[in-house]
Design a protein around this nucleic acid. Sequence first.
RNA 1: GGGCGGUUAGCUCAGUUUGGUAGAGCACAUGACUUACAUUCAUGUGGCCGUAGGUUCAAGUCCUGCACCGCCCACCA
Length: 885
Amino acid sequence: MLCKFGAHLMKELYPRYNFKESDDKWAKLWDEEKVFHASSKSGQPSYSVVIPPPNVTGILHMGHALNNTLQDIIVRFKRMKGFNTCWMPGTDHAGIATQNVVEKQLAKEGKTRQQIGREAMLKRLWEWKSQYGDTIINQLKKLGASCDWPRSRFTMDEAYSDAVNEVFIWLYEKGLVYRSRYIINWCPRCLTALSDEEAEHKEKKGNLYYIRYPLKDDKNKYVTVATTRPETMLGDTSVAVNPKDPRYKDFIGKKLILPLMEREINIIADEFVDPAFGTGAVKVTPAHDPNDYAMGLRHELEFLNVMYPDAKINENGKHFKGLDRFEARKRIVEELKAKGLLEKIDEHTHSIGHCYRCDTVIEPYLSKQWFVKMKPLAEPALEAVKSGKIKFYPERWTKVYLNWMENIRDWCISRQIWWGHRIPVWYCPQCPEGENIIVSKDNPPKCPRCDSKDIKQDEDVLDTWFSSWLWPFATFGWPQKNKDLDIYYPTTSLFTASEIIFFWVARMIMAGLEFMGDIPFSDVYIHGTVRDAKGRKMSKSLGNAIDPLEIISEYGADSLRFSLIINSGQDLFISKEKFEIGRNFANKIWNASRLILMNTSDYNPGYKISDTEGLSLPSRWIISKFYSTLQKVEEAIEKYRFSEAETMIYDFFWGNFCDWYLEIIKDKWNDENTNNITLYVLGESLKMMSPFIPFVTEEIWSHLNPESGCLSTQNWPSFDKSLIDLEAENRMQSVLNSITNIRNIRADWNIARTNKIKCEVFSSDKDFISLINDNESLLSRLSNCSLELHSGKTGKDIINSASFIIGQSQFIIPLGEFIDVAKERAKKESDLAKLKNNHEALAAKLNNESFLSKAPQEIIDNTKEQLNSLDVHIKELEKLVSILK
RNA sequence: GGGCGGUUAGCUCAGUUUGGUAGAGCACAUGACUUACAUUCAUGUGGCCGUAGGUUCAAGUCCUGCACCGCCCACCA
């Protein structure tokens, strides 16, 4: 399945990584070959994750890209680690969102859903789904998501719908589902109820209107009420004051005339009223406000609905009938003003609920809806988190979850739309209220009580989340018993954003415990929100969104993934340039691999490092560095610290492997040992990097080891503690320091590499000497200038020179030819002053008795050493300054 | 009103679990087209770690207060 590129052909390949070609090639191959399909074989430890199902209407945005890359990293990691790994993909039918999309389509044809009817509308919806429903799935494939695609589920699949019905009936029979008239959040545009979570509250500037309600017995006296929604006064059935409020003591029980409507209403006393707000008197509209509704129940008030479902005033609003609520507000205010009943209008900022789908202002609306009683479900779900069976990462989200669960309220699950799972309830018009409900999984032919065939199914469908909360087990076939459920449930980790905790995470935990008798996952990882560079949420309306697909085509999928994750420690502030780091890194990996493949013979996949005794110091060093990195990367992934893992990979591969190791060995391609080690470290590094940047590593792997199949299915490098060699790391570090020192001097004295200057470097570092002796040109190349190494000689024959001892090396640098003496002297003098300052501070520290008596010996020694080395530096500098004079 | 997060280099952020000489990327400056890579390499400039106290030989790190920014929740009419 893989075409073999001979290593020698790498020369022909682009010096720049061609991500376009390889992104497409590998995404296609992984998909076609079903590389990520889990086998359902038991016996092996399993690792499973369910995708947060994107809406079928979804188009990949940065939030998706982040969320799915995180999952993909750990899933690829676990798969390579040998777990029976299943990442369950699928899409959500997204009730209102999808219906809105198709309604818009209809509107273009000049039709409404009511005109074409329910059946035709559903047909249109399914057509839309089959045409566009896979869009986001294909985009996820472009991202490299290694889902178990053949298992893909949709929340309205037949089997899945079956699970939804089963659950509704289960809860109904337990008495946890009930139907009731209640004030709910109503979207007058979508014409449906919304759950509390679907109401988005936004702070908006508005007005507080002070309206006078005259007393019935004395038209000159009045009570002033304050309201932000004057139009609701049409439905007022009372005015409430606090019983302890002295201002209104004498008014309680008296009658008022409701202006404009000219109805009589009572003044009642209720503790709820805050005397400090407004006038201390509240108009009570039980049918249009949740608080007033509660008061209405307490005082047995009339519930007078004054609006149609589309928020136009109904006949109860008399001459305002037919007006939209905001138009009515204007007219009412005008009329009140004309009658002298409008006392004043204050500016007032308050939070107003908006429909989370269409952003229309929500109307609290009295209607009959289905609810789920949540308290009994919440209790075990609280316990599961309190006991630590389920853990949140980062931990702080635990509190947010617990707090919400402890104050949980019943869940309104019916929606007055058509796209979704129709409520499995039928009503018999023949039977008396209360006994007329038939709950059934299949279409019941007749009423079981009275045998009437004239029964009608509930018109409503269920909240989308009423199906999503079953996702971790319904996707594996529940309520049917089957092997997949046994193997993959409970899943391990769940990845989502914080705003989804209430919508989905909490409900999945409740559902898992109720219907499966077990938690749905043990770890919940909450990642940050993707924002623009100014910290605003990315949104279409703001026009600040960066399209991940655009990034994929401009920078490549690996760049998108890598750049997002390395920035994912907290909320991400993204601008286009941030994706360069990923692109550059992918290109670096590509070119390092080209260098190696162009110069080495074939990769030996069976190669093992058994003994490091005979290996060179750089080899032992890079092996040790690789394994310490591997260990840290594994730990970081297990702790869900992905940005940390990437940083370590980046530092290792670029900072150690490319910048030092390859530079040191790059002209020793005739050494077989070195070649083996180099290829080995490259191969193992590709494996380690594969979960993070799967495309470029896969591409290189196909050149490195074409026979072995996909890199994505290779075994993760096995960590070998015995190959971590701290001695080699330290000794090599000392060598690298020496080279860095030479580079410092070179840059300091502005010695160009083209200047073939004669200067001598003396060193007592044996590793350094042997490394340099091994290869004549190495020192010059590494230090970016032409230097000669002499050991055991002194530089007496060099005239007008300065010698330095830095670390273990002595440097003799010719002066005069390359520098501006005055400038250099000024610079050195200021350096000298700084050093003297430091010297003084350290000396003071070493005179401090409590420091000497209490600080650990190590720190004291360190300080002394610093002081000594400062002494040397200061002397050298003083000498230099005097030469420069 | 309650809760949470943040404040470290010009910018974006690590570092805070377990106190011990302040880190990275970008940007900037200088030098280099060195046969893998200029999407590169080398070197450097740049920080009283938000603020006021406390604990300690030692605080970016632990404790307390405050300020500012951001987010979430809540029934302010």
